[in-house]
Design a protein around this nucleic acid. Structure first.
Lengths: 135, 135
DNA sequence: TTGAGAATGCAACTGATTATCATTAGCTTT
DNA sequence: AAAGCTAATGATAATCAGTTGCATTCTCAA
C-alpha cells in the first residue's frame, strides 16, 4: 500500500508535502504517466504543487532507482514504478495503449547477444509496436 | 556510390543544392549522425546550408523511407540510411559508440511475442546498453 | 527563358525539461 | 516548543531540439 513511500523514506531523504503527493499519485497509477499527467494527478492531493517540482522529483526518484523513465517516442518521458517485475513493452499503435509482457527466452537472448559482442549487458530496451490482429 | 542520390531521384522529388549536400553527407557517414552533426558535415559541401533545411530534409527522407530515425535517448534523433540490412543496436555505455548486430532468433522472437499478444508487429526497437567485458 | 510552385534561409516560435533565485518548510539541536 | 541550518518549493526565465511563417531564391517543365 505505502510501499513506494516507505522505500523512499528508507533512502533517508526529506519527506515533503510535494513528494508525498507525487509518490501517492504514482503509486495509484497503473499506467505509464508522463510528468504532466502526474502533475495533474498529484495536484488532486496537493493543489499547490508546481510542475517544476514534479520534474525535479521524477529526476530524483529515477536517480535513486524508485522509478523507471521511458521514452516511447512521443516527446514526453513516461514513468513507472521500478522493480515491480521485469518486463518489456508493446505499444498498440491503434490506441497508444502500452502493454507489458515478459518473455524468458527474450531475456536470455539479450544477455547472450551482448555477451557474444563482448559486452556485459547493463540495460536494454525492447519495444514492440503493433496493431491488433484482425484474424 | 551514388545509391542514395539515385534512390532519391527515383522518388521524383526536386533535387536541390541543399538536398544533394545532405544526401552526400549522409552517404559518406558510416555512423548514426544526428541532425546537427549532419548539418556540419553537409556544410562542408554547401556552406550556406541552414539547420532548418537539414531538419526539413531529414523529415522528408524519413517520410519517403530513405532514412531511418532513431532515438537512443540522448535527446537528439539520430539517422541512418534505411534498408541496408535489418539490424538492432548495442550502445557501448563507456564510449557512446553504437554497434549494429543481427540475430535471427531475436527477429523471430519479436514476431512471435507480438503474435502471442494478439498483435501484428509493425515496428520494433531493440537496444542493448552494455560495457565492454573485462574478462 | 520564363513562370509557377517548391525549397531555402532566417528568425520567431513550440513544447518539454532544466536552472535560477527568493521564499518556505523539514528536521535537528537545544 | 523554539531556533537555525539547509534542502525543497513555486514562479519564472532559460535552454534545447525541432518546427513554422514568410519573404526571397531556385527548380524544372513548358
Amino acid at each position: 500500500m505505502q510501499r513506494l513511500e516507505e522505500k523512499y523514506l528508507e533512502k533517508g531523504l526529506r519527506m515533503t508535502t510535494a513528494r508525498r503527493a507525487i509518490l501517492q499519485a504514482l503509486q495509484a497509477s497503473d499506467d505509464h504517466p508522463d510528468a504532466l499527467t502526474l502533475h495533474v494527478r498529484a495536484q488532486a492531493i496537493d493543489p499547490t504543487l508546481a510542475q517544476a517540482t514534479v520534474y525535479r522529483t521524477m529526476r530524483l526518484l529515477e536517480e535513486i532507482g524508485l522509478v523507471e523513465k521511458h521514452d516511447f517516442g512521443n516527446g514526453r518521458a513516461r514513468y513507472e514504478e521500478a522493480g515491480k517485475d521485469q518486463h518489456d513493452h508493446l505499444i498498440n499503435l491503434a490506441t497508444g495503449e502500452i502493454l507489458e509482457f515478459h518473455d524468458e527466452a527474450l531475456e536470455a537472448l539479450k544477455v547472450q547477444i551482448a555477451d557474444r559482442l563482448g559486452f556485459d549487458l547493463k540495460d536494454h530496451r525492447v519495444e514492440l509496436y503493433g496493431v491488433p490482429k484482425v484474424k
